[in-house]
Simulated scan of single mutants.
Amino acid sequence: MVRNHYGYGLLLCLVLSQPAYAQTDDGTAAFAKRDYRSALLNWQPRADQGDATAQYGLGRLYFFGLGVPPDSKQGIFWFRKAADQNNPYAERRLGLVYSVGEDDVAPDPEQANIWFQKAVAGLSKVAEDGDVMAQYLLGGMYSDGEGAEPDAAKANFWFQKAMGSFREQAEQGTTSAQYWLGQMYLNGQGVSRDVDQAIIWLSKAAEQGDLGAQLCLGEIYTYAQYDRKDSDMAIKWLTKAAEQGDPGAQKRLSAVYAERAHPADASASAYWYRRATDTEASSAAKDSPSEAVKPINLPFSSKN
């Protein structure tokens, strides 16, 4: 689990980049393109038929409100379905749910630990086969003590494995690898924290149109804790993200303009705030599930 992220951009870029198990299906391809409606239409019938990959994917859509109104109960329902089939990513997600609580699911450290332990075992198998996202997540779990005692040596081992794969792919121009390599430098995972290196790799991904990287750069240049506060650079990257239609980027961009308090910036601030409002209204209308993809309304509690 990645820690120490600040603001909307860094949160959303992680949501957009969450790993998917068995990344070979059309639903996952649609999800990677942020075509959440297509992912939903692909995953829903397969999930109903017991496909664990589709169940995990569907859980992500509902849990994070991607292509559908946010519904954590539905998300948890599908995570459990996938976890019951030993999907390690779903097992980890349930561990996170029980560790902090969600809606009517009370925090339950014992249940969280059970699911984290299952996730560590499952992720270890695919990580040993070269799954880079499993390697990355294992690094975070050993670092944070999720499903095992905190173990800096094991965390570093898996982070180093992941970083090697990310670097190789990033140097070949793979956008997602550039993003994750930047994140590892930003968070000091498997390497000493290096904001300059983080910016280099995130910029490469952002220049290729990666929304998450654009949002992350906007946050880096907005907040003082990164020691790179620069409103012009924040505006540059947030504008690119805002122009992709992301309402959070539009609101953040509006706030950056407002904070500068220049007369010429006031109209820009108002413009982007209106754009964000219009985007959210449009998205709310478009994201209402059709009759063909209604969620399954089954109860969920921490006991079942």
Rank of each mutant, 00 (worst) to 15 (best):
E219R: 07
S165E: 05
L14R: 13
Q55G: 07
V68Y: 12
S301I: 09
T279D: 13
N42F: 11
T174Q: 04
E171S: 12
S124T: 01
G209T: 11
R37M: 00
Y21G: 04
A268R: 12
S192L: 08
A285K: 13
I220L: 15
T28E: 08
K118Y: 01
W272Q: 06
R34K: 10
Q44W: 00
F63Q: 15
I199W: 15
G140S: 07
D210W: 00
D227R: 13
D108M: 06
P109D: 12
S192Q: 05
D196R: 11
L96E: 14
F77A: 02
E207Q: 14
M133Q: 11
A285R: 15
Q18C: 06
G218E: 08
A134L: 10
L14G: 08
L66G: 10
A30Q: 01
G122Q: 09
M141G: 09
Q135C: 08
L16W: 14
K286M: 00
D210S: 03
E207N: 13
A29M: 03
G218R: 14
G7P: 02
L10K: 10
V2N: 15
D196S: 07
V2L: 12
V293E: 13
N87C: 02
A162H: 01
G130L: 11
L16H: 13
V15D: 15
G67K: 05
K125W: 00
S267D: 05
D103A: 12
R93P: 00
G67H: 09
E168N: 04
A30R: 06
G57Y: 14
F63T: 09
D246C: 05
G67W: 06
G9I: 11
A270Y: 03
Y56G: 01
R275L: 07
R275T: 01
P299W: 12
Q55R: 07
D35L: 00
R60M: 07
A249R: 08
N86S: 15
S124A: 01
W115L: 04
A152H: 11
R93N: 10
G95S: 08
L298Q: 13
A205T: 02
G139P: 03
L58K: 07
T53N: 14
T222S: 14
S38F: 02
A206V: 07
Y56R: 10
S283C: 02
A276P: 03
A155I: 09
D278K: 14
Q44K: 13
A29D: 08
L61C: 06
R274C: 03
N187P: 02
P247A: 15
Q183L: 02
G50C: 10
Y185N: 01
Y179Q: 05
Q172Y: 06
K118I: 03
S254N: 10
Y142D: 00
V120I: 05
P247N: 11
K118G: 01
S17M: 08
I235P: 11
W237L: 08
G7F: 09
N304Q: 10
M141F: 13
R80C: 02
A30H: 01
Y56P: 00
A234W: 14
L186H: 10
A249C: 05
T175L: 09
L215Y: 14
P150K: 12
K118Q: 06
L138T: 01
Q250D: 10
N187E: 11
Y136D: 06
G95D: 09
A284W: 03
D194I: 01
A270K: 06
K161A: 10
A30T: 03
V256W: 05
Y273K: 14
V256N: 06
W115C: 10
N86R: 13
D84E: 15
G173D: 05
D131W: 08
S283T: 02
